[in-house]
Design a protein around this nucleic acid. Structure first.
Length: 720
DNA sequence: GATTGCGATCTTTTT
DNA sequence: GATCGCAATC
């Protein structure tokens, strides 16, 4: 058998991991050391050499993207379909288990997955129903509490009453929340994991079945697992040693959302027969970048200890730029990107990494002003958009009338005359009788004299859902979506929305039909579930990766967190100031500070060739001028690895840099009240002017298109 | 039922 | 500073 393609591309440490004897293995894989490769080749090794059936492979990742990549790479390497392997996210696999064994998991067949914004809405409503003051009991905090409990495997009933008023109240909401979810057939993300764990724990026969099926279990990014995820892995590997874990304690940056690096240590206790293999050769960055990153991370106390090295040479020094303020910082970065591009670099090889999303704006403005294409990661994704969630809510109701979250969402969207009063009445009945809102609405119609108007509206709504279900029965999935879009009145609603937001929403609804058309139920459908239910779960579990412009040559802007796992030739780590990075909230707690430091380490190790660090002496934060000291992380980098940059012609004083030499008034091409023409929007009148030079913007009241702000450097306006 | 205005809030994010 | 959610208003 030819296994050269599995073994040959590996270095010694990688090969040791891939070919390790069949027992528990922990691979500590430094940044850029080829951890995905090891995982993929390990699976290939097991199949080709150990004779493990593909059917017996389980591989868990944290993101859908990582799962997809793993599938693709295994298929490429082995020329073998991964169809029969269980490869997915913890949540995706848990979902699959629950679908297969809904009964035993005590869930209705049509249960649906709530995303976090659904969850927050439900909690908000609950807080109101319980008569709690939202300012005293912030729903966000309650949501956080509930999820934290679930991540630790705790139900409301497991808690002992400590007499603490705060805790008692939190538990009361938790309990009410559990009841509502059970009644509605709704499952949040944390619940997927918790329930999947309980399912296996409480059904020994089922557990035995899966223990026998999954002969090899692989986990990516193990340092990010939380308590319940690890417990789930332990159940599946009970009495066996068939775990292959890959992770990096130095890249644990999700402690704040429940990830437990300690799982790495616990693993070593729980699987005494294990083997640890370190991957320390880095194939990504230059020697200087690695040395600097090593030095920074070495300041952390809590770590296993690892030192990256490369045989690729030292490369350039790390550049440090002290900006006058945040505008100057942006100016500098964009200037450097321009130079990079002029020298033949690609924009998409350049990334601007920041600690918090709010920092992206200056960079966006400067990039826009220089007409440099860019792409910002983060923000709303496709399936999270309001119009999409509305359409999905109709579909969910069609599948499951008891889905209260969806019921509430669309009972009056589009408005059909069912206001706060009617909804309040329905809620009251639901609460009294412990039934779903749908059932309560029917009860309300039967028992109480309502105003004829409200009654009509309510009957209309209930009948609409029933009718939609009937009409959809024989249709293809995408036709069902189309049907809902039209008959629900959503299309009509957005068509009449003023401004250009409505048009975008219509396009998104259209895109949803398209997504349904392309949806491939095959891959998930070992279970004989309705295609609609699968599509709806898919929408919740995979909120949709970013927009389609992925292949365009754009400068990449993202937070340090979202940069994990990526690499760029040219990296700017911006906003290196005390209070920002490390963030203020982390600076008084050593554990959190160390997590910030790991974040810094992650950021630095994204860079392949050139790394720029910048900070601003003054920065506007929340509208107020702040003067901060440079980040302590900068001092942790040996001085000999850093070169300080001064801008040449450009003086860092913003007044000199920003203002053109000529007066603003003379430059104005348009005046207030002037009539102008636009190729797309037609004729309009200038209402306001602001900014200057490339940034000049005008607010224009168009006869047809309404009031808009336009960048004059982009919009070609004609004076009329 | 839509529009306006006011105050509170303001890491990080995937599922 | 900007957004968002909620309440008062037309």
């Amino acid at each position: 058998m030819d296994i050269t393609n599995i073994i040959d591309p590996l270095n010694d440490a990688q090969r040791a991991a891939v070919t390790a004897p069949n027992r528990a293995v922990l691979v500590l894989a430094g940044a850029g050391s080829g951890k995905t490769r090891v995982l993929v080749h390990r699976i290939a090794w097991q199949i080709r050499v150990e004779g493990v059936s593909a059917h017996s492979i389980l591989a868990v990742t944290f993101t859908n993207k990582a799962a997809r990549e793993m599938r693709n790479r295994i298929e490429d390497l082995l020329d073998l379909s991964t169809q029969t392997m269980w490869i997915g996210t913890f949540h995706g696999l848990a979902h699959r288990l629950l679908r297969r064994h809904a009964k035993q998991a005590k869930l209705p067949d049509t249960f649906q997955v709530m995303d976090s914004s659904d969850q927050l809405r439900v909690i908000k409503r609950l807080v109101a129903a319980l008569g709690l003051d939202e300012t005293k009991w912030p729903p966000k905090q309650i949501q956080w509490f509930i999820n934290a409990q679930k991540d630790e495997g705790k139900r409301a009933r497991h808690q002992i009453d400590s007499g603490d008023l705060f805790q008692r109240q939190m538990l009361a909401v938790y309990k009410a929340y559990e009841e509502l979810c059970d009644r509605s057939g709704l499952v949040d993300f944390a619940e997927l994991l918790l329930r999947a764990h309980e399912l296996l724990r409480d059904n020994r026969d089922l557990l035995a079945f899966y223990q026998q099926r999954f002969l090899q279990i692989h986990v990516d990014e193990f340092q990010d697992t939380n308590t319940i995820q690890y417990a789930w892995l332990r159940l599946l590997t009970e009495g066996k040693d068939n775990l292959f874990l890959v992770g990096d304690d130095d890249q644990s940056i999700y402690g704040w959302r429940g990830a437990r690096v300690e799982n790495i240590f616990n693993f070593q206790k729980h699987y005494p027969n294990h083997q640890v293999i370190k991957l320390e050769q880095n194939y990504r960055s230059t020697g200087n970048i690695l040395n600097a990153a090593n030095k920074v991370i070495s300041k952390n106390e809590a770590r296993m200890g690892k030192e990256l090295w490369t045989d690729a040479g030292k490369g350039d020094l790390i550049s440090l730029y002290a900006a006058f303020n945040e505008l100057d910082e942006a100016y500098f970065v964009v200037d450097r990107i321009k130079a990079w591009v002029n020298e033949g670099g690609l924009r998409k090889d350049a990334a601007i990494l920041y600690r918090s999303n709010a920092q992206s704006r200056q960079f966006e403005e400067k990039l826009m002003a220089t007409a440099t294409p860019y792409r910002v990661y983060g923000g709303l994704r496709f399936f999270e958009r309001a119009e999409i969630k509305n359409a999905l809510a109709y579909l969910r109701l069609m599948s499951n009338r008891d889905d209260d979250a969806s019921f509430e969402r669309v009972i009056n969207t589009p408005t059909r005359g069912l206001g706060a009063k009617a909804i309040e009445d329905i809620r009251l009945i639901a609460k009294d009788q412990g039934i779903s809102l749908w059932a309560a609405a029917i009860a309300l119609l039967n028992q109480k004299a309502m105003s004829p108007r409200a009654k009509n509206a309510l009957v209309g709504f209930l009948e609409l859902i029933d009718r939609l279900e009937g009409l959809a029965a024989e249709l293809e999935l995408y036709e069902k979506v189309q049907l809902v879009n039209e008959q629900s009145g959503l299309i009509y609603l957005y068509k009449n929305e003023k401004g250009d937001r409505g048009e975008e929403k219509l396009e998104n609804l259209e895109e949803l039909v398209n997504a349904a058309r392309l949806f491939d139920a095959e891959q998930d459908n070992e279970e004989s579930l309705s295609e609609l239910d699968l599509f709806l779960s898919h929408a919740a579990l995979e909120a949709g990766d970013m927009q389609g412009d992925e292949f365009e040559d754009c400068v990449q802007l993202m937070t340090l967190h979202s940069a994990k796992g990526l690499e760029f030739k040219l990296v700017f780590l911006v906003g290196m100031e005390e209070g920002l990075f490390p963030s203020q909230q982390s600076s008084d707690d050593i554990a959190r500070l160390e997590e910030e430091r790991r974040l810094c380490y992650v950021g630095m190790t994204r860079a392949m060739q050139q790394l720029y660090l910048t900070y601003a002496e003054s920065r506007r934060i929340y509208g107020k001028e702040n003067y901060s000291r440079p980040s302590r992380f900068l001092r942790e980098i040996p001085a000999e690895l850093i070169q300080e940059v001064r801008m040449r012609a450009h003086v860092s004083r913003p007044l000199a840099a920003e203002k053109p030499t000529h007066s603003i008034k003379q430059e104005r091409r348009f005046n207030l009240g002037q009539r102008v023409g636009h190729a797309k929007f037609g004729e309009g009148v200038v209402l306001q002017l602001e900014g200057e030079g490339a940034q000049e913007r005008a607010q224009i009241n168009f006869k047809q298109a309404g009031v808009k702000w336009l960048m004059l450097s982009y919009a070609h306006l004609d004076a009329l």
